[in-house]
């Protein structure tokens, strides 16, 4: 790793100041992605601003409208244990990585990174969740911008993610055998005004919504509604672990299974 300083501010305000001054700074959430990246020398910040000591971005609660509000600094383990009001989301968090990784990795860190194989982006997109930062609120549909890219500005921190709890939901993940990340992960959420289906792991553009499946399921929320629907393999990731066609096939399979499990 290149050298850098670490600061541990205790408020969002202090963190933002550190991130916006003249030093090359990067925010450090749980570090479960950033630290391996730094070990590979793929990033060279002069300073890391740890968000781990900021209590404002901790906590899970429900607001008056019943939406589940999860602090950006909440770990996957804490979401798994504390987001019982949204069982599919808690279940997704409980299967990220492994127990030790879940004790450090955070929802804010995962979303800000937008790894094309990460699980959380599919939950956020399928739930039409709101990503709340220190400066604004960003709708899920506007948040994800392609591989490792989001709508976040430099120095903008995710303070909270707000999920409307659906009537039915499930997440089905097919693991890449080596990394155990999602080779394909599908999150299906049924709301009063329709069904949303978000797919991670499959596309070269990162998480996306499967519009055709959403339309079919909004009419009839049953696996049979997906009969005959398929995705094109081109534009899907093709690598050692599977061709684009295989991923496209898995998307259909996982969507079906998610509907059956919801």
């Amino acid at each position: 790793m290149y050298t850098f300083d670490i600061e541990r501010p205790s408020t969002v305000g202090d963190a933002v100041k550190l991130l916006s001054d003249s030093t090359e700074s990067q925010p450090l959430g749980g570090g479960q992605t950033l630290i391996p990246t730094l070990k590979q020398r793929l990033a060279m910040p002069d300073r890391l601003v740890s968000l781990g000591g900021i209590t404002e971005i901790q906590g899970i609660s429900q607001d008056d409208g019943g939406a589940l509000c999860i602090g950006g600094g909440v770990t996957h383990a804490d979401v798994a244990a504390g987001a019982g009001a949204y069982a599919a989301l808690a279940g997704l968090a409980g299967k990220i990585g492994d127990p030790a990784v879940r004790n450090r990795g955070t929802i804010g860190g995962s979303l800000a990174n937008n790894d094309p194989s990460a699980c959380y982006p599919s939950a956020v997109l399928a739930s039409g969740a709101t990503v709340v930062t220190n400066t604004r609120e960003i709708a899920a549909d506007d948040f994800f911008d392609g591989l490792f890219t989001t709508a976040l500005e430099e120095g903008e921190i995710i303070t909270e993610v707000r999920f409307a709890v659906p009537q039915k939901a499930a997440y089905m993940k097919f693991e890449q055998p080596a990394s155990r990340f999602a080779l394909v992960g599908v999150f299906v959420a049924k709301y009063a005004d329709g069904v949303r289906v978000a797919v991670t792991g499959a596309s070269e553009g990162g998480v996306f919504r499967w519009a055709e499946a959403e339309a079919a399921l909004s009419t009839n929320f049953a696996a049979s509604a997906l009969d005959g629907l398929s995705l094109d393999g081109s534009g899907m990731i093709s690598d050692l672990h599977g061709s684009g066609d295989y991923r496209a096939h898995l998307v259909a399979v996982m969507t079906r299974r998610a509907v059956e499990a919801a």
């Binding site: 080596a178 990394s179 690598d239």
Partner: peptide, 11 residues
């Protein structure tokens, strides 16, 4: 080498 770590070499 494509399998340069445990992320791609499945143990």
């Amino acid at each position: 080498l494509l399998t340069g770590s445990f992320m791609d070499y499945a143990m």
